[in-house]
Design a protein around this nucleic acid. Structure first.
Lengths: 328, 328
DNA sequence: TTGAAAGCGCTAACAT
DNA sequence: ATGTTAGCGCTTTCAA
């Protein structure tokens, strides 16, 4: 920067101003500075600039899993939300390992991200509070009771109910639910399922499997292999596992929805594909991401006050994998 | 840091060493330092540390599109490749807009990433060279002729041929190809298709559509609406567009593979899903990512020499969407 | 508007 | 093994 100043015949201050596109520099000087910067192959060092200015204008975004398309939607929403605000996004991928997630968040904090957006945090509230050290954070799709941490999520309890209500209305009575209880810090969908089942006086059937297509496939296979009577409908934790369930059913010669109905969750593009036509509970991922970005922006703009909890209402998108039970 | 030093009764140097987990500090001092750091709620500033040390131990990873699962695979490969090397990943999402991509790369460079890994760069070589300013870079899935830029990719020319050869062997003669020529800086797959078609003395049929499920869906719909004779087989640019093609065919009442065969490209988990069973050309995305990380690591370890070009052989994974043509 | 000076919070020689 | 001293490359007062 000093070289540029010398080359352009000015001191260092105007160079700094030109780089930040400040209007307080006369046009001719600005041109001179820009020219010698180009001539010298100057590349600004944002580490230094951020260190000195104590502002990074950057949000850290943690995405749980790139293989689940719902996070692409959440990301799009966040990107839409920060567009035009002059803020940047740096993203890290968590892989559902609390230690890795904590490390990623720590990295954001140490890099002095202005705020942190967590889409799919699986650790404990205590860990989160410890690693955040006061950095503004908004947790997406989960409610984490930590002071100063805002949450934007879908009403998963209601979503679970919605799925059961839809199936019950179609005439289903043997309705199973698939998720991964001991791992998941997101029990609300199952709870909603259980609530609705009890309300209808139905017996819950709980299956367990990893939260992936493969996990859904295996869990369903194991259940069928065990010789248990086939449920007439299955509520899967999300679209990806629902796809695995479909894989399993179809590979066993069971027809969907003729023999078994299947509901997913997230309403990803996967579910929306005309070929699959997966009935799914829409948690409005993109909108959630956008709102989360908005909340972070508000905090940066100085909004104080208690934790913000925004809980959107999920909606059921009915497609071709659910229908009235045939036999029974 | 000075506060910690005072609190622990030492000077600043050992504090810095403790933070970097250096072994040159006596255990009792280390403990004292750690204690007062915790007591004071110390959070190291990595901006300052990176600025002072002039090393960031961070790779910038640019991902073209989160909605295409192939990039999740590439990312996994990169993550696997850098695991245990003490390097971190910072990722940015490109959205297939050269301006946005350039901005993301500039950001990596300005933040002094040690290297940059570009999965799906769509800009020109000149732009890339200009923004890189000497930062080591490896471009993934594309060959970009820029000095000092390494490339790890699949032999797309061969991949295009592979698809046609497979279909030809099954007995297909009216084989169409779908991609987006004017936008895509990746013409090799189409070229491979064209080469093989010419070799077999067949007439090429070129369809155009956006590189997304929706794009494939629309392109196929338009083609069918135009009343052109239905091809007996379709080679799609990638799995995502292939899914769109399937959507279109099935919604028109055409059966796959009985009436039309379809081949995708990338062999993503989407294609591998038993439900879809999409025949696809595997470009070994995860391995490519891993190799790319390895190349970057080599460069950082001081490997000089000319540009490295690693071109993997694609393989065809045959599933249920391709079969011998029935009627003709 | 521009110039000079004092940091931002850390690392890296070096000397002890 | 520990303390001291100079920076890393920028921004930001403050004066001029």
């Amino acid at each position: 920067m000093e070289d540029i100043a010398r080359e352009a015949g000015v001191s260092r201050a105007p160079v700094s101003l030109v780089m930040r596109e400040s209007p307080k520099v006369s046009p001719e000087r600005r041109r001179a500075v820009l020219e010698s910067a180009a001539a010298l192959g100057y590349s600004p060092n944002r580490l230094a600039s951020r260190l000195a200015s104590r502002r990074t204008r950057t949000f850290g975004v943690l995405l749980l899993d790139l293989h689940n398309p719902v996070f692409a939607d959440v990301y799009d929403g966040i990107a839409e939300g920060v567009a035009g605000t002059g803020n940047q996004l740096m993203v890290a991928v968590g892989s559902a390992d609390p230690a890795a997630e904590t490390e990623a968040i720590r990295s954001f904090v140490d890099l002095r991200a202005d705020a942190v957006l967590l889409a799919g945090y699986t650790g404990t509230p205590e860990q989160l509070a410890a690693v955040l050290r006061g950095t503004p954070a908004v947790v997406i799709t989960r409610e984490v009771p930590v002071d100063g941490v805002d949450c934007v999520l879908s009403d998963d309890l209601r979503g679970g109910e919605l799925a059961v209500e839809h199936l019950h209305e179609l005439g289903h009575r043997r309705i199973a639910h698939l998720d991964k209880p001991e791992w998941l810090p997101y029990p609300s969908r199952r709870q909603g399922y259980l609530n609705a089942m009890r309300r209808f006086g139905l017996e819950p059937i709980l299956l367990e499997g990893d939260m992936s297509e493969r996990g859904g496939f295996r869990a369903m296979n194991e259940y069928l292999d065990a010789g248990a009577p086939v449920p007439s409908a299955i509520v899967a934790y999300n679209d990806v596992t629902a796809l695995g369930v479909l894989d399993s059913l179809v590979s066993r010669g069971l027809r969907v929805p003729d023999d078994v109905s299947v509901i997913g969750y997230d309403n990803t593009e996967l579910a929306a594909s005309p070929l699959l036509g997966l009935t799914s509970v829409d948690l409005h991922a993109r909108e959630i991401g956008k709102i989360a970005a908005g909340v972070a922006l508000e905090r940066l703009a100085g909004a104080t006050g208690p934790r913000i909890i925004r809980r959107l209402k999920p909606t059921l998108v009915r497609r071709r994998t659910t229908a009235a039970p045939s036999g029974n």
